[in-house]
């Protein structure tokens, strides 16, 4: 067995991990709407602090969290380098013909804060849900069946597909292939992609047959159901209260 592409943050046992996934999804949805709707720094800072607290409570390991934040903030560096120079307003710094505006800087900081808050929220509340449970929770929240099935099959088969990619990669290397900047490399990469596509189509056809063999008629039965308890209600109330308090910050 090779390592999984799907990264497990879900195998924890914090308070957060035990909250009903549906409740957690609704909390994230509510928080995202509020954060997107506000533009004042006070509420944004408060929401960011709330998300940070949740990350601590969920006992997310530092390494995967750091990796996520690094990817996001590498992107955000571009925002910080471009937005202040592209907005009109009071100039606070002049670099040749380009001037950075106070409003632009404030806007860039807002975008960065919003982005980080959302990543912290998603990491603490959604990444801690097992992907398959997440799919079920989405089904129960009336997200269209087809979309959720795509997610489920992706989770199930991404490793199988990745395995065949790694196998082909190794077979190519064993025959002396080295990726270079030439036509041969481009053609070989195209063959690899085409081969993976063909394999996926074949597999999809075989899976469909396997499903028909077991009586499938286009409807997916769900075996496990969720039960929200008092703890979930308490969490939802606490979260709603904290979010409301954050939003009325000066």
């Amino acid at each position: 067995m090779t390592t999984s592409v799907v990264h497990p943050l879900a195998h924890g046992d914090s308070v957060i991990h035990r909250i009903d996934p549906r409740v957690r999804l609704l909390c994230v949805l509510a928080a995202s709407v509020c954060i997107a709707a506000t533009s004042r720094p006070g509420p944004l800072l408060a929401a960011c602090a709330l998300a940070a607290v949740l990350v601590l409570v969920a006992r997310i390991p530092w390494r995967p969290l750091w990796r996520r934040l690094r990817v996001l903030n590498a992107f955000m560096a571009i925002v910080l380098l471009t937005v202040p120079f592209s907005m009109q307003g009071e100039t606070i710094w002049q670099a040749g013909a380009l001037g950075a505006s106070r409003e632009g800087l404030a806007q860039a900081l807002r975008i960065i804060l919003t982005g980080n808050t959302l990543v912290l929220l998603l990491t603490s509340l959604v990444a801690t849900i097992e992907p398959t449970v997440l799919a079920h929770a989405l089904l129960h929240l009336r997200v269209p069946d087809k979309l959720v099935r795509i997610l489920m099959f992706a989770v199930r088969y991404i490793d199988v597909l990745n395995d065949s990619r790694l196998r082909m990669d190794r077979a190519m290397k064993a025959r002396g292939y080295v990726a270079r900047c030439n036509a041969h490399t481009v053609r070989t990469s195209a063959y690899l992609v085409a081969c993976l596509l063909a394999q996926s189509l074949d597999r999809a056809a075989r899976i469909e047959r396997a499903m028909r063999c077991r009586g499938w008629r286009g409807q997916f039965p769900v075996l496990n159901h969720f039960h929200a308890g008092a703890r979930d209600v308490r969490f939802a109330c606490l979260f709603a209260g904290a979010l409301a308090a954050a939003m009325v910050m000066p």
Partner: peptide
């Protein structure tokens, strides 16, 4: 099809449900 069961050559084709329990439950639920 319920009275005649086919075990596929590649088990990955057959195990499409997320967990073992759900996969075994797929046929009876249908």
């Amino acid at each position: 099809r319920g009275r005649i069961g086919l075990l596929f050559q590649d088990a990955d084709d057959q195990l499409f449900c997320p967990t073992v329990e759900e996969d075994v439950a797929f046929g009876p639920l249908n």
